[in-house]
Design a protein around this nucleic acid. Structure first.
Lengths: 226, 226
DNA sequence: CTGCCGCTTGAGGGTTTCTTGACGGTGGTG
DNA sequence: CACCACCGTCAAGAAACCCTCAAGCGGCAG
């Protein structure tokens, strides 16, 4: 359903929650420290950040502040304290939601969905993305290469848009299936391949001579010019 | 920005939200019970009412009904439940908007502005919109193409107006149903299709050769010239 | 009461788009 | 070198989608 970054130092929680969320259809990346978390937010641009407050290296609130300095990503905070004052401070500091430990994976999943749904309502649309001579406008769903318009179908566009959210990053087909097709689905990699093939044709490139869509054997695909 | 009455029993939320909204430029009065809320609406005549559904003394829907009996004030309801049925009932009961708990102060501020904007527009009227050779005047509800007047029915006009608010942006039929028909639930896509068809005919274009109304298969429609 | 107008809904038709299986080529590995 | 996993493309059937027509239902005016 969504790309999630989980920042949690407790190995047991991190592994089990990560697994549960994956089962629930999310694409989960995990790190164990606040420092890694901040780096990962900047690098991977997750759609939701799950932040544990009791981190060993940095204070959770500092992490939150630093994340907020570089990203608008919605943040769900996990805290052991449930007094009103803490919660208020958290929300003021920019958290979008919070859960009190201990919490179930099911609840966390529900929170993630709730946060995404809310944002889906709010966000009017993203601004246009450019990767070299490739321009993608999410609002009008128009794409141009070297200024020339390209007609894409729904899935083709969504696929390209998903790749464009992290240009230069190799993205697995599994992730693309989750993001574009919205299914936790196994198998069906061929579907992605076929759409990629069509995309390449329309963008004026071939698999042998790629310009924007670069396959990385055994890993996935990345979007970048040349 | 606006005089707001906040009815919320949870101290933490009431205080923090009140503070945030004040910071955002609103004048905020708060009460903790439904009874006080009704009294305060009658007495203070706020410009917007933020109503929590989970009040201790009265059922939120009863409060809403009583408020509606004495005032036209726009109401934004905060609810913990987000199933479609509840939402429909709320809107039917006279709510102008709703947010799902938990929500951020920023979002609430956005909702307040949105509600005020909507109402402000309805009262004083918007300025005319032009999309290429298509002119739409919300006040007189007159439309011209290439200077030639076009007669539209109410729904046709509302549909065109909704599209014109975000020209060039693909808008889903769901959204149009919500905006023009006021129904947040699914189903009835055919209705939009038919009105689009009639609109096209009156605007002098066809689905195969669109000039203003561009269908984007699998996504929605967008308004733009050519 | 009757007829007209605008709106909603269902059905049909014609496309477009998506998925899936098959096949061949390629690169990595033992 | 042989094998295997992976990737790209094709083709065909299935599914989804959009448009239009037409029937039915109020509401409203005459």
């Amino acid at each position: 359903m969504a790309r999630v970054l989980l920042v949690e130092d407790d190995d047991a929680i991190r592994l089990s929650l990560g697994k549960s969320l994956t089962t629930a259809g999310h694409v989960v990346a995990t790190v164990a420290t606040g420092a890694e978390g901040i780096a990962a937010v900047a690098r991977d641009k997750p759609e939701v950040l799950l932040l544990d407050l009791g981190l060993p290296d940095l204070d959770g609130k500092d992490v939150l502040a630093m994340v907020r300095a570089v990203s608008e990503v919605p943040v769900i905070v996990a805290t052991a304290r449930d007094d009103d004052a803490s919660v208020v401070r958290l929300l003021d500091a920019g958290a979008d939601d919070y859960v009190i430990k201990p919490f179930s994976a099911a609840q966390m999943d529900a929170r993630i969905r709730a946060v995404l749904r809310r944002l889906g309502q709010d966000q009017q649309g993203e601004s246009t993305v450019e990767v070299g001579a490739l321009k993608i406008d999410p609002r009008s769903r128009e794409v141009t290469v070297d200024g020339r318009p390209v007609e894409l179908t729904r899935k083709e566009f969504d696929l390209l848009l998903a790749l464009s959210r992290r240009p230069g990053t190799v993205i697995t087909k599994r992730e693309l299936l989750a993001e574009v097709w919205g299914l936790p689905w196994g198998g069906g990699d061929r579907t992605v391949d076929v759409h990629l093939s069509w995309l390449r044709r329309k963008l004026g490139e071939t698999a042998a001579q790629p310009r924007f869509l670069h396959s990385v054997r055994g890993v996935g695909v990345k979007l970048s010019e040349t």
